[in-house]
Design a protein around this nucleic acid. Sequence first.
DNA 1: TCAAAGGATTTTGTGTACAATCTGAAAAAT
DNA 2: ATTTTTCAGATTGTACACAAAATCCTTTGA
Lengths: 233, 233
Amino acid sequence: MKITAVAETETTTRSVSIAETLRCAILAGEFSPGERMIEINLSERLNVSRTPIRAAFQALAGEGLLVHTPNKGYYVREFSLEDIVQAYEIRAALEGLAARRAAQAGMTTEQMEAVEEALSAGDALVDQEAFTPEDRSHYGQINKTFHDIVHAAGGSTMIRDMLRISQQVAPSSHHNVIAFEPRDVRRRHDDHHRIYEAILTRDGGRAEILMRDHVESVKLSLIRTLHSKPHAE
Amino acid sequence: MKITAVAETETTTRSVSIAETLRCAILAGEFSPGERMIEINLSERLNVSRTPIRAAFQALAGEGLLVHTPNKGYYVREFSLEDIVQAYEIRAALEGLAARRAAQAGMTTEQMEAVEEALSAGDALVDQEAFTPEDRSHYGQINKTFHDIVHAAGGSTMIRDMLRISQQVAPSSHHNVIAFEPRDVRRRHDDHHRIYEAILTRDGGRAEILMRDHVESVKLSLIRTLHSKPHAE
DNA sequence: TCAAAGGATTTTGTGTACAATCTGAAAAAT
DNA sequence: ATTTTTCAGATTGTACACAAAATCCTTTGA
Protein backbone atom coordinates (compact mmCIF):
# COMPACT_ATOMS: atom_id res chain seq x y z
CA MET A 1 0.00 0.00 0.00
CA LYS A 2 1.11 3.50 -0.75
CA ILE A 3 1.73 5.75 2.16
CA THR A 4 2.62 9.30 1.40
CA ALA A 5 4.64 11.15 3.93
CA VAL A 6 2.06 12.27 6.43
CA ALA A 7 1.98 14.60 9.38
CA GLU A 8 3.31 17.82 8.12
CA THR A 9 4.43 20.50 10.46
CA GLU A 10 1.87 23.21 10.93
CA THR A 11 3.15 24.98 7.84
CA THR A 12 1.43 28.26 7.45
CA THR A 13 3.06 31.08 5.58
CA ARG A 14 3.96 34.27 7.34
CA SER A 15 1.42 36.21 5.29
CA VAL A 16 -1.40 33.99 6.53
CA SER A 17 -0.46 34.06 10.18
CA ILE A 18 0.08 37.80 10.11
CA ALA A 19 -3.31 38.28 8.51
CA GLU A 20 -4.77 36.23 11.35
CA THR A 21 -2.90 38.28 13.92
CA LEU A 22 -4.01 41.58 12.45
CA ARG A 23 -7.59 40.42 12.04
CA CYS A 24 -7.82 39.66 15.74
CA ALA A 25 -6.12 42.91 16.64
CA ILE A 26 -8.51 44.94 14.52
CA LEU A 27 -11.57 43.13 15.82
CA ALA A 28 -10.28 43.60 19.36
CA GLY A 29 -10.21 47.30 18.69
CA GLU A 30 -6.45 47.70 18.92
CA PHE A 31 -6.56 49.98 15.91
CA SER A 32 -8.94 52.90 15.71
CA PRO A 33 -11.44 53.06 12.88
CA GLY A 34 -10.02 55.18 10.08
CA GLU A 35 -6.48 54.69 11.33
CA ARG A 36 -3.83 54.36 8.68
CA MET A 37 -1.98 51.05 8.67
CA ILE A 38 1.66 51.85 7.99
CA GLU A 39 3.52 48.94 6.51
CA ILE A 40 7.00 49.60 7.82
CA ASN A 41 5.61 50.32 11.24
CA LEU A 42 3.98 46.89 11.56
CA SER A 43 6.86 45.28 9.75
CA GLU A 44 9.14 46.33 12.62
CA ARG A 45 6.69 45.39 15.35
CA LEU A 46 6.19 41.92 13.93
CA ASN A 47 9.77 41.32 12.80
CA VAL A 48 9.06 40.55 9.18
CA SER A 49 9.59 42.42 5.96
CA ARG A 50 6.95 44.55 4.32
CA THR A 51 6.02 41.81 1.85
CA PRO A 52 3.94 39.59 4.13
CA ILE A 53 2.48 42.69 5.75
CA ARG A 54 1.22 43.86 2.39
CA ALA A 55 -0.17 40.43 1.62
CA ALA A 56 -2.03 40.43 4.92
CA PHE A 57 -3.38 43.92 4.27
CA GLN A 58 -4.70 42.83 0.90
CA ALA A 59 -6.35 39.79 2.40
CA LEU A 60 -8.00 41.86 5.13
CA ALA A 61 -9.14 44.41 2.57
CA GLY A 62 -10.86 41.55 0.77
CA GLU A 63 -12.68 40.71 3.97
CA GLY A 64 -13.80 44.30 4.33
CA LEU A 65 -11.77 45.08 7.43
CA LEU A 66 -9.42 47.47 5.67
CA VAL A 67 -9.92 49.79 2.76
CA HIS A 68 -7.28 50.58 0.22
CA THR A 69 -6.59 53.82 -1.60
CA PRO A 70 -3.97 53.63 -4.35
CA ASN A 71 -0.73 55.36 -3.49
CA LYS A 72 -2.06 56.17 -0.03
CA GLY A 73 -2.31 52.82 1.66
CA TYR A 74 -4.60 50.83 3.87
CA TYR A 75 -6.91 52.22 6.52
CA VAL A 76 -9.02 50.52 9.17
CA ARG A 77 -12.50 50.61 7.77
CA GLU A 78 -14.86 52.77 9.72
CA PHE A 79 -18.51 52.02 9.83
CA SER A 80 -21.20 54.64 10.03
CA LEU A 81 -24.34 54.05 12.03
CA GLU A 82 -26.07 53.61 8.69
CA ASP A 83 -23.58 50.86 7.78
CA ILE A 84 -24.31 49.03 11.01
CA VAL A 85 -28.04 49.22 10.48
CA GLN A 86 -27.64 47.94 6.95
CA ALA A 87 -25.49 45.10 8.18
CA TYR A 88 -28.28 44.03 10.52
CA GLU A 89 -30.73 44.11 7.64
CA ILE A 90 -28.45 41.88 5.61
CA ARG A 91 -27.97 39.57 8.55
CA ALA A 92 -31.70 39.37 9.02
CA ALA A 93 -32.17 38.34 5.40
CA LEU A 94 -29.29 35.86 5.35
CA GLU A 95 -29.87 34.33 8.77
CA GLY A 96 -33.51 33.93 7.85
CA LEU A 97 -32.40 32.06 4.76
CA ALA A 98 -30.04 29.91 6.79
CA ALA A 99 -32.79 29.10 9.30
CA ARG A 100 -35.13 28.07 6.51
CA ARG A 101 -32.50 25.85 4.97
CA ALA A 102 -31.70 24.37 8.37
CA ALA A 103 -35.35 23.50 8.84
CA GLN A 104 -35.51 21.94 5.40
CA ALA A 105 -32.28 19.98 5.81
CA GLY A 106 -32.70 19.09 9.46
CA MET A 107 -30.05 19.09 12.13
CA THR A 108 -27.61 16.40 13.14
CA THR A 109 -27.88 14.86 16.58
CA GLU A 110 -24.75 16.69 17.69
CA GLN A 111 -26.18 19.98 16.55
CA MET A 112 -29.44 19.36 18.35
CA GLU A 113 -27.63 18.48 21.55
CA ALA A 114 -25.46 21.58 21.29
CA VAL A 115 -28.48 23.81 20.70
CA GLU A 116 -30.36 22.30 23.59
CA GLU A 117 -27.39 22.79 25.85
CA ALA A 118 -27.15 26.43 24.80
CA LEU A 119 -30.87 26.91 25.35
CA SER A 120 -30.73 25.37 28.83
CA ALA A 121 -27.77 27.50 29.81
CA GLY A 122 -29.68 30.52 28.57
CA ASP A 123 -32.77 29.51 30.50
CA ALA A 124 -30.77 29.50 33.71
CA LEU A 125 -29.27 32.88 32.95
CA VAL A 126 -32.36 34.82 31.97
CA ASP A 127 -34.22 33.58 35.03
CA GLN A 128 -32.55 36.20 37.14
CA GLU A 129 -33.72 39.59 38.25
CA ALA A 130 -30.69 41.55 37.12
CA PHE A 131 -27.63 40.78 35.04
CA THR A 132 -24.03 41.35 35.94
CA PRO A 133 -21.58 42.27 33.18
CA GLU A 134 -20.31 38.68 33.35
CA ASP A 135 -23.84 37.42 32.77
CA ARG A 136 -24.12 39.65 29.74
CA SER A 137 -20.83 38.42 28.33
CA HIS A 138 -21.84 34.85 29.04
CA TYR A 139 -25.15 35.32 27.31
CA GLY A 140 -23.35 36.84 24.37
CA GLN A 141 -21.46 33.58 24.01
CA ILE A 142 -24.58 31.50 24.28
CA ASN A 143 -26.23 33.67 21.66
CA LYS A 144 -23.27 33.26 19.34
CA THR A 145 -23.31 29.51 19.81
CA PHE A 146 -26.96 29.30 18.89
CA HIS A 147 -26.56 31.33 15.73
CA ASP A 148 -23.38 29.54 14.72
CA ILE A 149 -25.10 26.18 14.90
CA VAL A 150 -27.99 27.40 12.78
CA HIS A 151 -25.49 28.71 10.24
CA ALA A 152 -23.67 25.40 10.24
CA ALA A 153 -26.91 23.49 9.78
CA GLY A 154 -28.44 25.69 7.10
CA GLY A 155 -25.82 28.01 5.78
CA SER A 156 -23.99 27.24 2.59
CA THR A 157 -20.35 28.19 2.41
CA MET A 158 -21.28 31.37 0.62
CA ILE A 159 -23.97 32.32 3.11
CA ARG A 160 -21.55 31.80 5.95
CA ASP A 161 -18.87 33.87 4.25
CA MET A 162 -21.27 36.73 3.81
CA LEU A 163 -22.58 36.42 7.33
CA ARG A 164 -19.06 36.57 8.65
CA ILE A 165 -18.46 39.79 6.77
CA SER A 166 -21.68 41.38 7.91
CA GLN A 167 -21.02 40.36 11.50
CA GLN A 168 -17.67 42.07 11.45
CA VAL A 169 -19.36 45.35 10.74
CA ALA A 170 -20.57 45.98 14.24
CA PRO A 171 -17.35 46.28 16.20
CA SER A 172 -17.24 44.84 19.66
CA SER A 173 -17.32 48.30 21.15
CA HIS A 174 -20.73 48.96 19.68
CA HIS A 175 -21.93 45.48 20.43
CA ASN A 176 -21.38 45.95 24.10
CA VAL A 177 -22.78 49.43 24.06
CA ILE A 178 -26.20 48.21 23.05
CA ALA A 179 -28.28 48.40 26.19
CA PHE A 180 -29.50 44.89 26.66
CA GLU A 181 -32.34 45.29 29.08
CA PRO A 182 -33.20 42.07 30.90
CA ARG A 183 -36.59 42.21 29.26
CA ASP A 184 -35.05 42.34 25.77
CA VAL A 185 -32.69 39.50 26.55
CA ARG A 186 -35.54 37.32 27.80
CA ARG A 187 -37.54 38.05 24.70
CA ARG A 188 -34.65 37.19 22.42
CA HIS A 189 -33.91 34.05 24.30
CA ASP A 190 -37.51 33.05 23.87
CA ASP A 191 -37.09 33.72 20.14
CA HIS A 192 -34.31 31.15 20.14
CA HIS A 193 -36.64 28.54 21.60
CA ARG A 194 -39.26 29.20 18.98
CA ILE A 195 -36.77 29.20 16.13
CA TYR A 196 -35.38 25.88 17.28
CA GLU A 197 -38.88 24.51 17.54
CA ALA A 198 -39.63 25.59 13.99
CA ILE A 199 -36.45 23.94 12.76
CA LEU A 200 -37.25 20.74 14.63
CA THR A 201 -40.71 20.59 13.14
CA ARG A 202 -39.24 21.29 9.71
CA ASP A 203 -41.29 24.43 9.30
CA GLY A 204 -38.93 26.38 7.06
CA GLY A 205 -41.21 29.32 6.48
CA ARG A 206 -41.78 29.86 10.17
CA ALA A 207 -38.10 29.45 11.00
CA GLU A 208 -37.25 32.08 8.43
CA ILE A 209 -39.81 34.61 9.60
CA LEU A 210 -38.89 34.15 13.23
CA MET A 211 -35.19 34.45 12.58
CA ARG A 212 -35.63 37.52 10.45
CA ASP A 213 -37.66 39.27 13.04
CA HIS A 214 -35.27 38.16 15.74
CA VAL A 215 -32.32 39.81 14.05
CA GLU A 216 -34.36 42.85 13.02
CA SER A 217 -35.28 43.37 16.64
CA VAL A 218 -31.62 43.80 17.49
CA LYS A 219 -31.41 46.41 14.76
CA LEU A 220 -34.39 48.21 16.23
CA SER A 221 -32.89 48.07 19.71
CA LEU A 222 -29.75 49.59 18.33
CA ILE A 223 -31.62 52.38 16.61
CA ARG A 224 -33.68 53.06 19.72
CA THR A 225 -30.63 53.12 21.95
CA LEU A 226 -28.59 55.40 19.76
CA HIS A 227 -31.58 57.64 19.23
CA SER A 228 -32.13 58.23 22.91
CA LYS A 229 -28.49 59.19 23.45
CA PRO A 230 -27.17 60.27 20.08
CA HIS A 231 -23.76 61.49 21.20
CA ALA A 232 -22.97 58.71 23.61
CA GLU A 233 -19.65 57.89 21.94
CA MET B 1 -6.31 33.20 -25.66
CA LYS B 2 -5.69 36.85 -25.72
CA ILE B 3 -6.01 39.07 -22.74
CA THR B 4 -7.06 42.56 -23.58
CA ALA B 5 -4.95 44.73 -21.36
CA VAL B 6 -6.59 47.65 -19.68
CA ALA B 7 -5.13 50.99 -20.63
CA GLU B 8 -2.53 52.20 -18.20
CA THR B 9 -4.05 55.44 -17.03
CA GLU B 10 -1.68 57.55 -15.03
CA THR B 11 -4.01 57.90 -12.10
CA THR B 12 -4.01 54.29 -11.04
CA THR B 13 -1.35 51.81 -10.07
CA ARG B 14 -0.32 48.81 -12.12
CA SER B 15 -1.72 46.46 -9.52
CA VAL B 16 -5.16 47.98 -9.85
CA SER B 17 -5.25 48.00 -13.64
CA ILE B 18 -3.97 44.44 -13.80
CA ALA B 19 -6.63 43.33 -11.36
CA GLU B 20 -9.18 44.95 -13.64
CA THR B 21 -7.69 43.24 -16.69
CA LEU B 22 -7.67 39.83 -15.07
CA ARG B 23 -11.16 40.25 -13.65
CA CYS B 24 -12.53 40.84 -17.13
CA ALA B 25 -10.51 37.96 -18.55
CA ILE B 26 -11.78 35.56 -15.91
CA LEU B 27 -15.39 36.68 -16.26
CA ALA B 28 -15.05 36.36 -20.03
CA GLY B 29 -14.04 32.76 -19.49
CA GLU B 30 -10.51 33.11 -20.80
CA PHE B 31 -9.28 30.98 -17.94
CA SER B 32 -10.84 27.65 -17.17
CA PRO B 33 -12.37 27.04 -13.77
CA GLY B 34 -9.82 25.37 -11.55
CA GLU B 35 -6.95 26.55 -13.70
CA ARG B 36 -3.81 27.50 -11.88
CA MET B 37 -2.76 31.11 -12.28
CA ILE B 38 1.01 31.14 -12.63
CA GLU B 39 2.57 34.40 -11.61
CA ILE B 40 5.62 34.44 -13.84
CA ASN B 41 3.53 33.37 -16.79
CA LEU B 42 1.20 36.35 -16.56
CA SER B 43 4.05 38.58 -15.53
CA GLU B 44 5.67 37.97 -18.91
CA ARG B 45 2.46 38.28 -20.88
CA LEU B 46 1.60 41.59 -19.28
CA ASN B 47 5.13 42.97 -19.12
CA VAL B 48 5.30 43.69 -15.43
CA SER B 49 7.06 42.08 -12.52
CA ARG B 50 5.47 39.47 -10.29
CA THR B 51 4.69 42.00 -7.58
CA PRO B 52 1.67 43.70 -9.15
CA ILE B 53 0.49 40.32 -10.41
CA ARG B 54 0.47 39.00 -6.87
CA ALA B 55 -1.34 42.10 -5.66
CA ALA B 56 -3.99 41.62 -8.32
CA PHE B 57 -4.38 37.94 -7.42
CA GLN B 58 -4.91 38.82 -3.80
CA ALA B 59 -7.50 41.42 -4.70
CA LEU B 60 -9.35 38.97 -6.93
CA ALA B 61 -9.21 36.33 -4.24
CA GLY B 62 -10.91 38.81 -1.94
CA GLU B 63 -13.68 39.16 -4.50
CA GLY B 64 -14.05 35.42 -4.67
CA LEU B 65 -12.87 34.95 -8.22
CA LEU B 66 -9.67 33.19 -7.24
CA VAL B 67 -8.87 30.89 -4.37
CA HIS B 68 -5.52 30.73 -2.69
CA THR B 69 -3.73 27.75 -1.21
CA PRO B 70 -0.56 28.54 0.73
CA ASN B 71 2.60 27.48 -1.06
CA LYS B 72 0.57 26.32 -4.03
CA GLY B 73 -0.79 29.49 -5.51
CA TYR B 74 -3.96 30.94 -6.92
CA TYR B 75 -6.56 29.01 -8.88
CA VAL B 76 -9.61 30.16 -10.79
CA ARG B 77 -12.48 29.41 -8.50
CA GLU B 78 -14.78 26.74 -9.77
CA PHE B 79 -18.39 26.72 -8.82
CA SER B 80 -20.40 23.59 -8.35
CA LEU B 81 -24.02 23.44 -9.36
CA GLU B 82 -24.78 23.62 -5.66
CA ASP B 83 -22.79 26.84 -5.40
CA ILE B 84 -24.75 28.39 -8.22
CA VAL B 85 -28.06 27.42 -6.69
CA GLN B 86 -26.97 28.86 -3.37
CA ALA B 87 -25.91 32.05 -5.07
CA TYR B 88 -29.39 32.44 -6.48
CA GLU B 89 -30.88 31.91 -3.05
CA ILE B 90 -28.67 34.62 -1.67
CA ARG B 91 -29.54 36.90 -4.54
CA ALA B 92 -33.21 36.28 -3.96
CA ALA B 93 -32.87 37.28 -0.32
CA LEU B 94 -30.71 40.33 -0.98
CA GLU B 95 -32.54 41.59 -4.04
CA GLY B 96 -35.78 41.21 -2.15
CA LEU B 97 -34.28 43.36 0.59
CA ALA B 98 -33.13 45.93 -1.96
CA ALA B 99 -36.57 46.04 -3.55
CA ARG B 100 -38.22 46.60 -0.19
CA ARG B 101 -35.81 49.39 0.62
CA ALA B 102 -36.35 50.91 -2.81
CA ALA B 103 -40.09 50.95 -2.20
CA GLN B 104 -39.60 52.51 1.20
CA ALA B 105 -37.15 55.12 -0.02
CA GLY B 106 -38.76 55.81 -3.37
CA MET B 107 -37.01 56.34 -6.66
CA THR B 108 -35.62 59.48 -8.20
CA THR B 109 -37.17 60.82 -11.37
CA GLU B 110 -34.16 59.70 -13.38
CA GLN B 111 -34.44 56.19 -12.00
CA MET B 112 -38.13 56.02 -12.82
CA GLU B 113 -37.51 57.21 -16.35
CA ALA B 114 -34.74 54.66 -16.83
CA VAL B 115 -36.90 51.84 -15.49
CA GLU B 116 -39.81 52.82 -17.69
CA GLU B 117 -37.56 52.94 -20.70
CA ALA B 118 -36.23 49.46 -19.91
CA LEU B 119 -39.74 48.16 -19.40
CA SER B 120 -40.93 49.60 -22.72
CA ALA B 121 -37.96 48.15 -24.56
CA GLY B 122 -38.73 44.82 -22.95
CA ASP B 123 -42.39 45.05 -23.91
CA ALA B 124 -41.41 45.41 -27.56
CA LEU B 125 -39.05 42.47 -27.35
CA VAL B 126 -41.22 39.92 -25.63
CA ASP B 127 -44.09 40.64 -27.99
CA GLN B 128 -42.54 38.40 -30.58
CA GLU B 129 -43.19 34.80 -31.44
CA ALA B 130 -39.60 33.60 -31.25
CA PHE B 131 -36.32 35.10 -30.08
CA THR B 132 -33.07 35.32 -31.96
CA PRO B 133 -29.82 35.04 -30.03
CA GLU B 134 -29.48 38.82 -30.42
CA ASP B 135 -32.89 39.26 -28.86
CA ARG B 136 -31.83 37.14 -25.96
CA SER B 137 -28.63 39.08 -25.45
CA HIS B 138 -30.56 42.32 -25.72
CA TYR B 139 -33.08 41.17 -23.18
CA GLY B 140 -30.24 40.18 -20.90
CA GLN B 141 -29.07 43.78 -20.96
CA ILE B 142 -32.54 45.12 -20.29
CA ASN B 143 -32.87 42.71 -17.42
CA LYS B 144 -29.55 43.82 -15.99
CA THR B 145 -30.55 47.46 -16.29
CA PHE B 146 -33.76 46.87 -14.39
CA HIS B 147 -32.06 45.07 -11.54
CA ASP B 148 -29.19 47.55 -11.39
CA ILE B 149 -31.59 50.44 -10.96
CA VAL B 150 -33.42 48.66 -8.17
CA HIS B 151 -30.10 48.00 -6.48
CA ALA B 152 -29.13 51.63 -6.89
CA ALA B 153 -32.45 52.79 -5.46
CA GLY B 154 -32.64 50.40 -2.54
CA GLY B 155 -29.33 48.73 -2.10
CA SER B 156 -26.89 49.98 0.48
CA THR B 157 -23.23 49.85 -0.40
CA MET B 158 -22.90 46.60 1.46
CA ILE B 159 -25.89 45.00 -0.21
CA ARG B 160 -24.54 45.96 -3.59
CA ASP B 161 -21.10 44.59 -2.80
CA MET B 162 -22.59 41.28 -1.78
CA LEU B 163 -24.86 41.19 -4.79
CA ARG B 164 -21.90 41.79 -7.06
CA ILE B 165 -20.11 38.83 -5.52
CA SER B 166 -23.09 36.54 -5.75
CA GLN B 167 -23.70 37.56 -9.34
CA GLN B 168 -20.17 36.61 -10.29
CA VAL B 169 -20.83 33.07 -9.24
CA ALA B 170 -22.78 32.09 -12.31
CA PRO B 171 -20.23 32.51 -15.06
CA SER B 172 -21.41 33.85 -18.38
CA SER B 173 -21.14 30.40 -19.89
CA HIS B 174 -23.78 29.06 -17.56
CA HIS B 175 -25.85 32.19 -17.83
CA ASN B 176 -26.23 31.77 -21.52
CA VAL B 177 -26.78 28.07 -21.26
CA ILE B 178 -29.98 28.53 -19.32
CA ALA B 179 -32.73 27.83 -21.77
CA PHE B 180 -34.87 30.90 -21.67
CA GLU B 181 -38.10 29.82 -23.23
CA PRO B 182 -40.12 32.72 -24.61
CA ARG B 183 -42.80 31.88 -22.10
CA ASP B 184 -40.36 32.18 -19.19
CA VAL B 185 -39.01 35.44 -20.50
CA ARG B 186 -42.49 36.88 -20.82
CA ARG B 187 -43.33 35.84 -17.34
CA ARG B 188 -40.19 37.37 -15.91
CA HIS B 189 -40.72 40.55 -17.80
CA ASP B 190 -44.18 40.74 -16.35
CA ASP B 191 -42.61 40.27 -12.91
CA HIS B 192 -40.58 43.40 -13.61
CA HIS B 193 -43.73 45.38 -14.25
CA ARG B 194 -45.28 44.23 -11.04
CA ILE B 195 -42.18 44.87 -9.01
CA TYR B 196 -41.94 48.38 -10.38
CA GLU B 197 -45.58 48.94 -9.61
CA ALA B 198 -45.05 47.81 -6.02
CA ILE B 199 -42.09 50.13 -5.67
CA LEU B 200 -44.09 53.05 -7.10
CA THR B 201 -46.93 52.46 -4.70
CA ARG B 202 -44.45 52.22 -1.84
CA ASP B 203 -45.55 48.72 -1.01
CA GLY B 204 -42.27 47.39 0.40
CA GLY B 205 -43.60 44.04 1.50
CA ARG B 206 -45.06 43.28 -1.90
CA ALA B 207 -41.95 44.48 -3.71
CA GLU B 208 -39.85 42.17 -1.58
CA ILE B 209 -42.01 39.11 -2.08
CA LEU B 210 -42.27 39.65 -5.81
CA MET B 211 -38.56 40.20 -6.23
CA ARG B 212 -37.69 37.17 -4.16
CA ASP B 213 -39.94 34.95 -6.15
CA HIS B 214 -38.71 36.48 -9.37
CA VAL B 215 -35.10 35.55 -8.62
CA GLU B 216 -36.06 32.19 -7.17
CA SER B 217 -37.81 31.38 -10.42
CA VAL B 218 -34.53 31.74 -12.26
CA LYS B 219 -33.01 29.32 -9.80
CA LEU B 220 -35.80 26.86 -10.45
CA SER B 221 -35.40 27.24 -14.21
CA LEU B 222 -31.74 26.50 -13.82
CA ILE B 223 -32.40 23.40 -11.75
CA ARG B 224 -35.01 22.21 -14.19
CA THR B 225 -32.78 22.80 -17.20
CA LEU B 226 -29.75 21.08 -15.76
CA HIS B 227 -31.90 18.26 -14.52
CA SER B 228 -33.30 17.48 -17.93
CA LYS B 229 -29.85 17.40 -19.53
CA PRO B 230 -27.41 16.74 -16.72
CA HIS B 231 -24.26 16.39 -18.80
CA ALA B 232 -24.90 19.22 -21.18
CA GLU B 233 -21.51 20.79 -20.53
C1' DT C 1 5.06 -3.43 -15.35
C1' DC C 2 4.57 -1.03 -11.41
C1' DA C 3 5.68 1.67 -7.49
C1' DA C 4 8.76 4.08 -4.67
C1' DA C 5 12.82 7.23 -4.18
C1' DG C 6 15.55 10.74 -5.41
C1' DG C 7 16.93 14.81 -7.64
C1' DA C 8 16.26 18.58 -11.05
C1' DT C 9 13.03 22.01 -12.29
C1' DT C 10 9.39 24.99 -11.52
C1' DT C 11 6.79 27.98 -8.68
C1' DT C 12 5.67 30.48 -4.65
C1' DG C 13 7.28 33.13 -0.33
C1' DT C 14 10.20 36.65 1.52
C1' DG C 15 13.61 40.30 1.90
C1' DT C 16 15.46 44.38 0.06
C1' DA C 17 16.70 48.24 -2.96
C1' DC C 18 15.06 51.85 -5.52
C1' DA C 19 11.47 54.68 -7.91
C1' DA C 20 7.10 57.12 -7.65
C1' DT C 21 4.04 59.46 -4.94
C1' DC C 22 2.13 61.60 -1.08
C1' DT C 23 2.44 64.52 3.24
C1' DG C 24 3.37 68.22 5.98
C1' DA C 25 5.84 72.07 7.28
C1' DA C 26 8.74 75.89 6.35
C1' DA C 27 9.61 79.70 3.23
C1' DA C 28 8.11 83.10 -0.08
C1' DA C 29 4.79 86.09 -2.19
C1' DT C 30 0.61 88.78 -2.13
C1' DA D 1 -2.40 87.36 7.97
C1' DT D 2 -3.38 84.40 4.25
C1' DT D 3 -2.25 81.89 0.38
C1' DT D 4 0.98 79.68 -2.59
C1' DT D 5 5.30 77.42 -3.47
C1' DT D 6 8.89 74.60 -2.48
C1' DC D 7 11.23 70.94 -0.68
C1' DA D 8 12.64 67.35 2.47
C1' DG D 9 10.97 63.40 4.81
C1' DA D 10 7.97 59.63 4.89
C1' DT D 11 5.31 56.03 2.66
C1' DT D 12 3.71 53.22 -0.95
C1' DG D 13 4.62 50.83 -5.61
C1' DT D 14 7.64 47.97 -8.32
C1' DA D 15 11.46 45.15 -9.65
C1' DC D 16 14.51 41.72 -8.66
C1' DA D 17 17.31 38.22 -6.01
C1' DC D 18 17.33 34.50 -3.16
C1' DA D 19 15.11 30.94 -0.04
C1' DA D 20 11.55 27.50 0.67
C1' DA D 21 8.31 24.58 -0.98
C1' DA D 22 5.97 21.93 -4.39
C1' DT D 23 5.91 19.53 -8.79
C1' DC D 24 7.62 16.77 -12.35
C1' DC D 25 10.54 13.40 -14.31
C1' DT D 26 13.97 10.10 -14.24
C1' DT D 27 15.98 6.36 -12.09
C1' DT D 28 16.00 2.32 -9.27
C1' DG D 29 14.29 -1.77 -7.23
C1' DA D 30 11.17 -5.59 -6.85
